[in-house]
């Protein structure tokens, strides 16, 4: 039975059949009966190629976004990575820059891969493509890592809509961070248990994250939030790969996220009526932006 509705189901399937999360995800997708295994892997590769193409077109671009709130950020991080002041590894610099590049392309209304949404689209490519560039992860492993990320998002999406409007940013960048943590563990050959612990650790820290975009644009806080989230996923994966489990099981964490999402007021769910969107700086920016535009 590959029709996983809980992480517990997924884990026991992996343990019984001696497969990774990514391999179980592949079996899940095959069992749906719409696409062959080869076609699914090709689909995964196509997604990875688009992720890389988006990063490459955005990485050294100075072009401002439609609103002018972002643009040129990833280029600055790539330059800083060469500076004597830099203190993170080259892998981490890439993770940050790649996520920024993806979100900046998104804000320019260019082509991206929603993962699980456009607002959270920088986290998975940021960690996966950076990891490939620095650690030479082979394509078949990378495809499985992406599928593992998809499976994690898929199981969460059975219990909550993955949109800031439905449950706040915990459902977008939050879930993307959990997906990325699983992808890192899969790419580095960790166990299914470690992958799910990494997801759990990542999500416990993303729970309650509100969606309060300035002027309703997917830019502030979204662009930089994706970059920070990649590092967050890396930390969660490191903790799990070191052999430290999550005290609260993942399924219970998802239930808690669902209930937190329900308690969250509508002002903090993508309506741009609370949080950062209501700060004086954001309010005056919004007036300037929309004041100039005819309705």
């Amino acid at each position: 039975m590959t029709n996983f509705s809980t992480f517990k189901d997924l884990l026991s399937y992996c343990q019984e059949h001696h497969v990774s999360i990514g391999e179980a995800a592949l079996e899940y997708e095959v069992a749906r009966g719409e696409r062959s295994e080869a076609d699914i892997l090709l689909g995964a590769r196509k997604i990875l190629e688009q992720m890389r193409a988006t990063i490459e077109s955005g990485l050294y671009s100075d072009e401002p976004s439609m609103s002018g709130l972002s643009g040129g950020f990833s280029k600055k991080v790539m330059a800083f990575s060469e500076s004597p002041q830099s203190f993170m590894s080259s892998l981490e610099h890439r993770m940050i820059a790649y996520a920024l590049a993806t979100l900046e392309e998104n804000s320019r209304m260019r082509k991206i891969v929603a993962c699980p949404t456009a607002g959270g689209s920088g986290v998975v490519p940021g960690v996966l493509i950076a990891l490939t560039d620095e650690k030479q992860i082979p394509m078949p492993t990378l495809e499985k890592a992406l599928l593992a990320a998809g499976m994690v998002g898929g199981i969460v999406s059975q219990r909550m809509h993955l949109s800031g409007a439905a449950a706040g940013c915990q459902a977008e960048v939050g879930v993307a961070t959990g997906m990325s943590a699983a992808a890192i563990v899969e790419a580095l050959g960790g166990t299914p248990q470690q992958a799910l612990d990494a997801v759990a650790i990542a999500l416990k820290n993303m729970m309650g994250l509100v969606c309060d975009p300035v002027a309703g644009l997917v830019e502030v806080p979204c662009v930089k939030r994706n970059a920070v989230a990649g590092i967050h996923a890396s930390a969660a994966a490191t903790i799990a790969l070191a052999g430290i489990p999550s005290f609260i099981p993942l399924d219970e964490i998802i239930d808690a996220m669902v209930s937190v999402g329900q308690m969250m007021p509508p002002q903090l769910k993508e309506s741009a009526e609370g949080g950062l969107a209501k700060t004086p700086t954001a309010v005056s920016f919004t007036e300037r932006l929309y004041g100039e535009q005819p309705d």
């Binding site: 998104n106 929603a114 993962c115 699980p116 456009a118 599928l147 499976m151 949109s163 800031g164 997917v218």
Partner: peptide, 17 residues
């Protein structure tokens, strides 16, 4: 549902919803 709904679609930004 397909996992390609989660890691996808390939789309023009800025917002999937």
């Amino acid at each position: 549902g397909s996992l390609f709904n989660i890691m996808g679609p390939i789309m023009i930004g800025p917002s999937s919803s």
